[in-house]
């Protein structure tokens, strides 16, 4: 559709303003995290890594960082293995009710996190899984795994099933065919799902709020606890680090998407 030059300029102005609104808070947080003083003033008066130093010196923040990466790492491994297997199974199987299965497996995506968190807290406390890292990994896996399933299923749509018949005719067992033929063909989807799973776990806050005791605090949980106590720029340094992780994940996942699109076209 063609719009007049005035309308077009107006639209671009609105778009620029909205994009600025979306990004400004993060830019401000990054700038403030390098502030040499505790004053939250913009523009910053000087540049200092003081708050990053405090972060690295604090036993609480370091424990939170360690917990975050341990939980996100374990969540990613479990979610990627189970999610990929299930997606391949869903694609291979010839039975009715597949749509129902996909809906069930992706229910945690559309359930409000607060409901999931409360329900898990009820149930996990009965079996002693609250206040433990394995319990936290299990909870994070539930909310992260649907992204792996969806991502791998999407890549499988472009997978040529005749390759499997060719492998079978050459004497490969189904398991061999899976590992040697299917996985190498769909790895961008698996990797994209794994990154989303890692990011989901690293950023997850509501479920962690219920499930984690002080010994299992993750970075978001520690940030929340610190905001409640005293608003120090240390929190902004932690926020900046989490933000940079998200940025890295975004770039990698975009690179994977571009790669998959080229593959799909070829």
């Amino acid at each position: 559709m063609r719009e007049g030059p005035v309308a077009r300029r107006l639209l671009r102005l609105v778009t620029a303003l909205v994009l600025a609104f979306l990004l400004a808070p993060m830019v401000a947080v990054i700038l403030l995290s390098f502030s040499p003083t505790e004053l939250l003033a913009l523009p910053p008066r000087g540049f200092s890594l003081r708050w990053y130093g405090e972060l690295l010196d604090s036993a609480r923040w370091m424990l939170a960082m360690k917990n975050s990466f341990v939980v996100a790492g374990a969540t990613t491994v479990v979610a990627t293995l189970l999610g990929t297997a299930a997606a391949v199974g869903l694609q291979l199987g010839r039975f009715r009710g597949k749509a129902v299965l996909v809906t069930i497996l992706t229910l945690p995506m559309v359930t409000p996190y607060i409901v999931t968190a409360a329900a898990m807290f009820f149930a996990y406390s009965l079996v002693g899984l609250t206040g433990s890292l394995p319990g936290l990994v299990l909870a994070h896996t539930v909310v992260a795994v649907p992204f792996v399933v969806v991502s791998v299923l999407a890549t499988l749509q472009t997978f040529d099933a005749t390759l499997l018949r060719a492998a079978a005719s050459l004497g490969a067992s189904p398991a061999t065919a899976l590992i040697r033929i299917v996985v190498p063909n769909i790895w961008p989807g698996i990797a994209a799902g794994a990154i989303f799973a890692f990011a989901t776990s690293l950023d997850e806050f509501v479920i962690t709020l219920f499930m984690a005791g002080p010994g299992q605090f993750t970075l978001p949980r520690q940030m929340y606890a610190s905001v409640r106590e005293f608003l120090s720029p240390t929190i902004l340094a932690a926020a900046t680090m989490l933000f940079l992780c998200s940025l890295l994940f975004l770039l990698v996942s975009e690179a994977l998407r571009v790669r998959a699109e080229r593959r799909g076209r070829a």
Binding site: G89, G93, F95, T116
Partner: peptide
């Protein structure tokens, strides 16, 4: 065909059990 379905079920089962045990049952219980 039958063998493929068995393989498919085997691949889906672990995740199904995980979602059942640590999500559907807790939400149902809640």
């Amino acid at each position: 065909m039958r063998r493929t379905n068995w393989l498919a079920a085997l691949l889906i089962a672990p995740l199904m059990l995980l979602i059942l045990g640590s999500f559907l049952l807790p939400v149902g219980f809640a």
